[in-house]
């Protein structure tokens, strides 16, 4: 693999890592479906708002 190959592989890994971490972060905070068009109505945080957060 050339240097350019490593850079491209790194960019792809970063993109996928960001996408997966967003999905996992949403799961942890109780969002049932990342980016579903329910406009937040299935967002569990909506029922447990906390000003301290």
């Amino acid at each position: 693999m050339s240097g350019m190959d490593w850079i491209v592989a790194g960019v792809i890994t970063l993109i996928i890592f960001l996408a997966v971490s967003k999905i996992l972060k949403d799961r942890k905070s109780g969002v049932k479906c990342t980016g579903c068009s329910c406009a937040g109505s299935c967002d569990q945080r909506a029922t447990s708002g906390n000003c301290a957060e």
Partner: peptide
């Protein structure tokens, strides 16, 4: 926004 987030993740 929801559609873009979904496209960019799942």
């Amino acid at each position: 926004k929801a559609f873009i987030i979904k496209a960019g993740t799942i």
